[in-house]
Structure formats: C-alpha cells, structure tokens
Design a protein around this nucleic acid. Structure first.
Lengths: 211, 211
DNA sequence: TAGATTGTTAATCGATTAACAATC
DNA sequence: TAGATTGTTAATCGATTAACAATC
C-alpha cells in the first residue's frame, strides 16, 4: 500500500535526511532497533516530531520495540531517492568543483559525475581524476546523451546565474548551487543551495551573541 | 541606539544571509535603493516578511524610497559579523579541506585560514597553498596562539565526531561541519552544517516528486 | 500479562502574512 | 500635496508538541 502523499514540508524533508544519515550509522554499528526517543535524543528533537516525520514514510514501527533500522533505512532511501543512481555534471573546475569531482562520497552515494565543464581555455583539456575538463559549448550534448539529472554550480557568484541559465537551457531539472548568490529558475527546476559562506555567517552570528 | 534584542529565530537568520548576499550584488551594480517588495521578489518571499526581518536590524528604511543599500549592507554585515575578521582552522586535508583552504572567497570575506590539520603521516608536511599541513597534536597550541574562532570539519563521517571533540577540547566555540553526520557538542559550542550530500538528497526528492 | 512504544488527534506555539496608520 | 513604502499590530497559517488510545 502506497502512502497517499500528504505533501512533505521542507522542514520534514531536511529532517528525513538527518534520520537517514543517523540510521546508516546505527546500521553500520549493527544496531537493529531504534526508538523515536533515541532518534530524537541524537538529533535534538522531540520523539513526537520524529514519529510525525516517519509517518510520512511508507513504513511502520512496532509497538514496544521501535523501528527496525534496516526497514527504516530502506524507507528513507526510497523516499529520498538514495536508492537510485543520479547523473551529475559539475560546472566550474576551480578548487571547489575539482574537489567535488574527486570526492568519493558522491560516487558511493549514487551520484555519478559524468563531466566537469569550464570556459577557461587554460583549463579545458586538463584532467580531474579520470574526467577531462570540457568547454561549456559541449554541455547540451552531454546532458542529452547521459540523461543528466543534476547540474552542480561551482563557479564564482557573478557567473552563477548565467551558468544556471545554461544548465536549464540544456534541459536539466535540478541544480545544486555552491555559489553564495541566489539562483532564479523556472518553476519546474529545483534548486538546492549549500551556502557554505552563509553557514559560516550563521555561525559567527551565534559566536557574537555568545559574548 | 542599540536594538534591544528580540531574539532572532533561525529562519530569520538564514534569510538575513540571503539579504546580505543580495544587497551586495545590488551594491556592486550601483543600485542605491531597494524596497521590501523588490527584495521579496528576488528571493521568493513576501514584502511583509522582508520588513519583519529587517526590523531585527539596527537600521531603518525611508517611507516612499525603501532601504538605502549601503546602510542596509552595513547593518546586515554588523548583525552577521561579516565586518569582522574570523580565525579558522581546517581539519582534514582531503579534497574538500584543501579546496576550502584555497578558496579565495573565504579570505575575501574575512575568514582567515590559519592552518590545515591532518593525522595522515603521508600528508603532514605537505603544502596547501602557503600553508603547511600539520599533525593533529599541534592543534591546541595553534588554537590558543592564533585565537581561533571556528574549526572546519572536513574529514569523512566516521571521524567527524572525534575531530569535533578535539576541536572543542582545544577551546573552539564554533564548528563548521562539512561531513554528513550529525555532530554532538556542548551547549556553548555552535555548530553549523553545510550538508552537501543532504542538499543533493533534498534535490533528488524534488526531482522524483516531479515525475 | 504488564509495560513500553507507536500512530494519531488535539492543543500549543511560533512564524508568516495581511492590513493599515504613520510618514517622507 | 498625493502617493508610495515603511514599521507594526493583529490575524492567519502551519509546524511542533502533548497526550493518549491502540497494540505488540
């Protein structure tokens, strides 16, 4: 029986990714059962929130025992698409772009990087791991041929919107934005921001409040 | 006159970093005034939310004109601590750690990276830009001598909590967590998560919903 | 069985939005 | 001045928490 989708609010979705990471840790520690209270304690939530969130999944716990970690992991993986392969390209062969291309956790989690693009003539043709850096004019062909799902924007802020537009024009429906500027996109294109600089600013805000 | 701090909710704080990035773009385009409606349109919010958020700042707009971008930028910078210098160390000299150490946007925004640590003997002594990779046992001394504010955790998930503990033990009050696991920390230590993998999972969730 | 934990409903809390008087 | 936009209060909306019956 499939869950009739109550829409999943963004706050819940974010927590689902937390549960997924946590349950994976539990699994690798061979823990077979976890209760809503235990998950809540680890992540700083209430058990009530955890139970509400898990009710969005096509998965049920067991009275008195809690949740079986293997089933919960599978249900979370399925909800998040973590049990699928996703095809990525990275635009921007600077430090960040190259680091992500080489970051083996991506591959391990089903995010396959098919190409790295850059318009800097000096970079085109060089290697990043096993991938050759390609010129931007090859983008559309790669996206089509490899059925690319996600474009990673790893260029400086001033170029980010332009790169986003070219990725969208090439037919990509998902953008991961590593730059610090806001990306505008059509309604049918999803954008996720990593906001590294913004995270640091939230941190320094907290540090100042602390004094 | 200082704003008597109504506490700033996390959701507002996150938007303040968005406003800051946006206002900086406006400023570099030499735009002198911006209204709450314009900011809202750019960022996909309501003007009401924008005005509420800005009311947390020690800064006032002008009827009929909106907000002067220079003053708003300064007020946001002050609130976020973006007008200060922050001292960082990075732990983990893998692809991600090295990329951040070389990422010039950090320096440009007042985040000064003082050292990169790694316990891999093969890496210690090598250079990352102008910095030499140091062994972890030198951490406490550097933190004390350089008055380090923030520790960046750029190690694989399984080591992340251990690294966090060592950074906290060395006296650091702010952690930027680049790993995909949740970090537990004492109440007086602030943690900010970048969650690159989680961002991708939120994206793939959206892509699946779209089909 | 008794007790612990889920799933879910209802209550609370907080954040967002609407509305409008103040104002430049 | 007239009109546009802020700042703020009140209303709405949605998310979190509490509570408890169901249940294994």
């Amino acid at each position: 029986m499939t869950n009739i989708a109550k829409p999943v609010p963004r706050s819940v979705l974010t927590r689902l990714t937390h549960y997924y990471a946590t349950v994976q840790s539990l699994r690798s520690a061979e823990t077979e059962w976890v209760s809503s209270t235990e998950l809540a304690d680890v992540l700083g939530l209430t058990s009530s929130t955890v139970r509400q969130d898990i009710s969005h999944l096509d998965f049920a716990g067991v009275s008195k025992r809690g949740y079986e970690t293997s089933g919960l992991e599978a249900a979370l993986a399925s909800a998040l698409g973590a049990d699928k392969i996703w095809n990525l390209v990275i635009v921007g062969a600077g430090n960040l772009g190259r680091a992500l291309a080489l970051h083996e956790e991506f591959q391990r989690r089903g995010f396959v990087i098919h190409a790295v693009f850059d318009d800097d003539k000096a970079k085109v043709g060089r290697k990043v791991g096993k991938l050759e850096i390609l010129a931007m004019d090859g983008l559309a062909a790669v996206v089509r041929k490899r059925a690319i799902d996600v474009g990673v924007i790893a260029v400086p802020g001033p170029s980010a919107q332009d790169v986003a537009d070219r990725l969208v024009a090439a037919g990509i429906k998902g953008l991961l934005n590593l730059s610090s500027v806001h990306i505008a996109s059509p309604d049918d294109v999803a954008v996720s921001d990593t906001r590294i600089i913004a995270s640091l600013q939230e941190l320094t805000f907290a540090l100042m409040a602390k004094v």
